[in-house]
Design a binder for these strands. Structure first.
Lengths: 155, 155
DNA sequence: TTGTTTGCAAACCTTTTGCACGTTA
DNA sequence: TAACGTGCAAAAGGTTTGCAAACAA
């Protein structure tokens, strides 16, 4: 993770997230299926966001015969359950990453030259967003910040 | 404009922006064409961001015979010249709005229920983003903030 | 068994591209 | 006139949907 501060380790987060996702899906009336299990496991391995197509390719490369439609349907389900965050990087496709149960999250640095995406976190920024959220007429439930420019290789 | 603070009036901004856009395009080797003139004029009437399809429809409704391809090509040109900001609201299409020459800009409140988009501005948020931008390894040239939730009608 | 979930293929929608024609300088 | 810009139509992605077969409870 690039940026101002780090939080807990990815490995620990991933393990917790898989368990949290399983529990949340179990609470719903959803059935246990190999496709969903595989997608949840695959999401947990990500450092940052990935597109549906990338997740699909990753699973097929690992021997799965999952269809792209199931990837989209499962991502929609996970997003609806608050288990996944949807990120728009402006490359014409949506990207997805696991959402931490405790609300801990990061934002994104996007390279306009090569499309590289990295994560960052900043407490002051979160505080400013929180303050704005309390002041506007909308009832805010989520937020996204994207910083665009040139990455270390492209600058 | 919804939110914490207002800045200069839309009418004044629009007029300035059309002049600024014309001047900027003239500096490039671009030719004056009716399609580009119409698109610039149409963009200037927007309160907030609009999709290419919406801009196209608006122009056709006003009697123009412009093609959708010209709308996309012109928006790309304007974006490349820094005259237009591209906004991703997550509805599957990019949205566009005039970019002020002085860097003055706003961010967006997006209603998850009805898709309504409104603008807001907050100085503390800008300051926080500026501070982060100076600290990360990327060289940041632009930023976007999206606050999601329920609008006044849907909350 | 019964309703859910799946993979495939087709459909859909946004955006891009090829091309012949019109327009600008 | 020579290059640039346009509208149209076709192509190219990404995403969604219809459906019969596979699967979980």
């Amino acid at each position: 993770m690039t940026g101002v501060s780090n939080h807990s380790t990815p490995a620990n987060d991933s393990t917790n997230w898989v368990a949290h996702a399983s529990a949340t899906l179990a609470q719903r009336r959803t059935r246990k299926s190999s496709a969903r299990t595989a997608i949840v496991a695959s999401l947990a391995t990500q450092d940052c966001c990935a597109s549906a197509q990338e997740i699909h390719t990753r699973l097929r490369n690992n021997g799965s015969s999952i269809g792209i439609a199931s990837v989209y349907r499962t991502l929609e389900l996970l997003h609806h359950c608050g288990l996944v965050t949807r990120v728009d990087t402006g490359d014409g496709s949506a990207r997805f990453e696991p959402a931490n149960p405790d609300g801990e999250h990061h934002h994104h640095l996007i390279c306009n030259a090569c499309g590289n995406v990295e994560a960052f976190h900043d407490d002051a920024l979160e505080a400013a967003i929180h303050a704005v959220s309390n002041r506007v007429v909308f009832r805010i439930t989520a937020h996204e910040v994207a910083l665009r420019g040139a990455c270390q290789n492209c600058r």
